[in-house]
């Protein structure tokens, strides 16, 4: 789609007020729209569906990097699972494509083992190739998600690790700023 494809009616973009006047109107419109959307969805190619899923994943990862939230769930593996499931019908095929053992992938996906550098690097290159036909995908994203999560977890759980760690830390000859 080129930049100049579209014509413009004089002043047409100055403003649209499309607020619903009632909840009933919104529901009625929503119902009619949903029926039409479902018809259109039938013609949606699997290629476009995969593109949409990968774009959604990328946007979610970027949002997480921008505003990390620490929760019990592991975002890295959640994103990884979404990534694999968007493009493979069997996870073992992804394991083959990045030349790792299927059991290792299963352990990483199920949070039984942390990914090592080799895995992250292969994932980075795999994603670069996958997103090449879809949209820009910064090679840092997986690393950023992984370490952002680690950092958020450390900061959120200080009460668990700090007392034990502080016992091992002291500074000799600490000079006061008043001296």
């Amino acid at each position: 789609m080129g930049k100049n494809k579209f014509k413009e009616i004089e002043g047409a973009e100055f403003g649209v007020d499309s607020r619903y006047t009632s909840k009933k109107k919104q529901l009625d419109d929503g119902k009619a729209l949903m029926e039409a959307r479902l018809q259109r969805m039938k013609n949606l190619s699997s290629d476009k569906i995969i593109k949409a899923k990968l774009l959604q994943l990328k946007l979610k990862m970027e949002e997480f990097i921008k505003e990390p939230i620490y929760q019990e769930e592991n975002h890295f593996t959640k994103f990884l699972t979404s990534y694999i499931d968007a493009i493979y019908s069997k996870r073992i095929d992804f394991a083959k494509d990045i030349d790792i053992d299927a059991n290792l992938l299963s352990k990483i996906v199920n949070n039984h083992r942390k990914p090592k550098e080799d895995f992250l690097l292969r994932l980075m290159i795999h994603s670069e190739k996958t997103y090449n036909n879809i949209c820009h995908f910064h090679k840092k994203i997986w690393y950023q998600v992984y370490f952002q999560e680690k950092l958020s977890g450390l900061m959120a759980n200080q009460d668990q690790w700090r007392p034990n760690v502080e016992r091992h830390v002291k500074i000799k000859n600490l000079t006061s700023v008043d001296d």
Binding site: F14, G15, V16, D17, R19
Partner: peptide, 8 residues
């Protein structure tokens, strides 16, 4: 997502 108002 429904656009309620949009303007330039």
């Amino acid at each position: 997502i429904h656009i309620r108002l949009i303007t330039v």
